[in-house]
Amino acid sequence: MLLDRDTQYLKSIDLKRENISSYRNFPLNLPVIQHFRKLDFHPNVTYIIGENGMGKSTLLEAIAVSLGFNPEGGSLNFNFSSFDSHSNLHEYIRIAKGGFRPTDSFFFRAESYYNLATNIEELDKGGNSPRIIDSFGGTSLHEQSHGESFFATFIHRLQGKGLYILDEPEAALSPLRQMSLLARIHELIHDESQLIISTHSPIIMAYPEAKIIQLTEMGMEETTLENTNHYKMMEQFFEDRDRLLHHLFGEANKK
């Protein structure tokens, strides 16, 4: 069953502008914050996309932290810190929740996934039963390839009827695995899940009827897959690869 406007877990996000005295310092100096406007989440999947430095991960981190997740990822029960580097943006955002609550939740962050896997190993050394790793498929995440361990989380740990925040989930996935993740997203959506995803992958952001929010130097705008910079760049590359490579290599030779 799909969530809809009446049953979705997260409704919207806005700025607490009354708490902001200056936009000069990070993270308030990010274009997405300086030009922020209220964002209504799609009941099923919302993509936050944009070039590096536009604030995608910082925004997702703020959403996750404000909801009670560990900044480095995991479920609401994880409480560890390898390096305290998260911003204080969560102090300046206001999230509107729906009337229904998810039965499962998870914040996946590619950047700190290794730290999460290590924390699971340390917690399971205590001999508790069931082991935490059992909910990730039972095999140590450190004993799998990077991509396999990512996918084990998506397949085993995300159990449905949940709220899932995924920051660059494609980071270790081959194109084939990215398509498999797209199929997994479809399964989760049809099991009453809502997802908020930051990605650079046109494959991942191809879910039908999803909301795509593109971050640029001018702020944020809703767009379609075909109009994203990511899609246009890949389309240009594959349709006229020789010309594009000639231009790229010519620029490199000038340096």
Rank of each mutant, 00 (worst) to 15 (best):
E122V: 10
L123A: 14
L123T: 13
L123M: 14
D124S: 05
D124L: 00
D124M: 08
K125H: 14
K125D: 15
G126A: 12
G126W: 12
G126M: 10
G127K: 04
N128Q: 15
N128D: 15
N128E: 15
S129Y: 14
S129K: 12
P130W: 10
P130C: 04
R131M: 15
R131T: 15
R131N: 13
I132T: 04
I132V: 03
I133K: 00
D134I: 02
D134V: 03
D134W: 07
S135N: 09
F136W: 08
F136S: 00
G137E: 10
G137F: 07
G137S: 05
G138A: 05
T139I: 13
T139R: 10
T139G: 00
T139F: 07
T139C: 06
S140Q: 03
S140F: 09
L141P: 00
L141F: 08
H142G: 05
H142A: 13
H142I: 14
E143N: 12
E143F: 12
Q144D: 12
Q144G: 03
S145G: 13
S145D: 10
S145M: 06
S145Q: 09
S145E: 12
H146V: 09
H146N: 13
H146E: 15
G147E: 10
G147T: 07
G147I: 02
G147K: 04
E148H: 05
E148W: 04
E148N: 10
E148M: 02
F150I: 03
F150M: 01
F151N: 05
F151S: 01
A152D: 15
A152V: 03
T153M: 11
T153Q: 05
T153E: 11
T153G: 08
T153V: 10
F154Y: 11
I155Q: 12
I155M: 11
I155S: 10
I155W: 09
I155R: 06
I155P: 00
R157L: 02
R157P: 01
L158R: 02
L158N: 04
L158W: 12
Q159M: 12
Q159T: 14
Q159I: 08
G160V: 04
G160I: 04
K161I: 08
K161S: 14
K161M: 11
G162T: 06
G162P: 04
G162F: 07
L163P: 09
L163K: 06
L163N: 04
Y164T: 03
Y164H: 01
Y164I: 02
Y164Q: 02
Y164W: 09
Y164S: 08
Y164A: 00
I165C: 00
I165E: 07
L166A: 09
L166E: 07
L166V: 09
E168N: 07
P169N: 03
P169M: 09
